[in-house]
């Protein structure tokens, strides 16, 4: 039996339904076609599926789609505005903070969540907050540098976008 999943994703309202066992990440990718959110381990270890649900960073493989009923979800597709990359994305590009790119959507969302609450994080805070996002290519150094740069880019960006 399917249950209703009415939710807002990146500001757009959807009225859908899903089987109870369907994970939010599969719902986002397969039902809504938002394939920016990646499925890595499916068991909450890698963080590639990180999205924001009602303002909190969650792993969408550890949540049922029907549990997002009535929620506001932000996925990596929600970062860029009008075809222009978000400052965090720009900082990741500028710092070569990816190689294969599989983990990148999760890192972008985790960085987004961190910088929303902590606009000027220390390196330790960055490393703590990104601790459950795994990257097998970069060794994390460029990612940490990117988040530092994103923090300063965001400071400028907020002056013009708020």
């Amino acid at each position: 039996m399917k249950l209703p999943v009415n939710l807002s994703v990146n500001g757009q309202a959807y009225e859908e339904e899903a089987e109870p066992r369907t994970l939010l990440v599969h719902f986002l990718r397969e039902r809504l076609g938002l394939t920016g959110t990646h499925v890595g381990c499916v068991v909450g270890e890698c963080g590639a599926c990180s999205v924001m649900v009602d303002g909190a960073l969650v792993k969408s493989c550890l949540m049922l789609a029907v549990q997002a009923h009535g929620c506001e979800v932000t996925t990596v597709e929600g970062l860029a505005q009008r075809g222009k990359l978000h400052p965090i994305q720009e900082a990741f590009v500028h710092n070569f903070a990816m190689q294969c790119g599989f983990c990148t959507p999760g890192f972008l969302m985790a960085s987004h969540a961190l910088l929303e609450r902590t606009p000027n994080p220390t390196e330790e805070q960055i490393r703590q907050d990104l601790s459950s996002n795994l990257c097998m290519c970069t060794g994390y150094v460029q990612i940490v540098e990117a988040v530092k740069e994103a923090a300063s880019r965001l400071g400028e960006w907020r002056k013009t976008h708020t």
Binding site: G44, L57, V58, K59, L62, D129, S131, S132
Partner: peptide
């Protein structure tokens, strides 16, 4: 415990 995502959930 765990990580930011896990503590949120």
């Amino acid at each position: 415990a765990a990580s930011p995502q896990i503590r949120n959930q």
